[in-house]
Amino acid sequence: METTKNYFFSDMAVMLGRSMRHILRSMDTIITVTIMPIALMLLFVYVLGGAIQSGTDNYVNYLLPGILLIAVANSVGYVSFRLFSDVQRGIFERFHSMPIARSAALWGHVLTSLLSNVISIAVIILVALIMGFRSPAGVLSWLSVAGILALFTLTLTWIAAIAGLSASSVDGASAIAYPIHFLPLISSAFVPTRSMPSGVRAFAENQPVTSIVETIRALLANQPVGSKIWVAIAWCAGIMLVAYFFAMRAYKKREAR
């Protein structure tokens, strides 16, 4: 028992290194999680932005939080896919028959999701800066933004883990990505909700992404966040706990097979 505990972090590092390689060697993943959000940002700012009344003089400032969430949302389909292939190819069985902590294999994927999103978000923010994004936010606000993005990433990652661990086909594993892709589109990520028809507007204003987007936007603009931040955190933490529970259940079920 003791030996596995002592090595938990080095084992995790091996797992992390392994799935980071999976990402870096997959052009498809890099395009979907980094290049596509950047292209979307370029499209919205330079093609559609002129016609959008966001209520801010700098549309990049308005748009960036939503783009960051889209980047995270795009990435989790790959988490399902990587988990699914590990289960399917017997890689998990190999790890589980070795003297390493059982949870290392799963947590390796979760950490990878977190780290890869940190990288793609940093790249996207860099591009946004070149495009004219400016923020008066202080260190504390930036740290809060990082915290909320991390929480959002973990939440979606655990949802994706349920799909990856319990799907019976590769299509099923990746299908989880589609509803997640849609949430940022029907929110205040691109345009303020006030222009939407009442039904859509009611949905947009009360779904998790809007509160998260607006919290990040307020933090970056150095404006008071009010209660939005707590709504955002409550959404993420609540969904994450439920998703974590079901993902763990699926993991244990896989183990017992």
């Binding site: 392994r18 390689r21 060697r25 017997g90 890689i91 190999r94 028959s97």
Partner: peptide, 13 residues
Amino acid sequence: SLTGQSAAVDEVL
């Protein structure tokens, strides 16, 4: 050591 039924190698590596 276990060598399972499906060759459990990491194909990306």
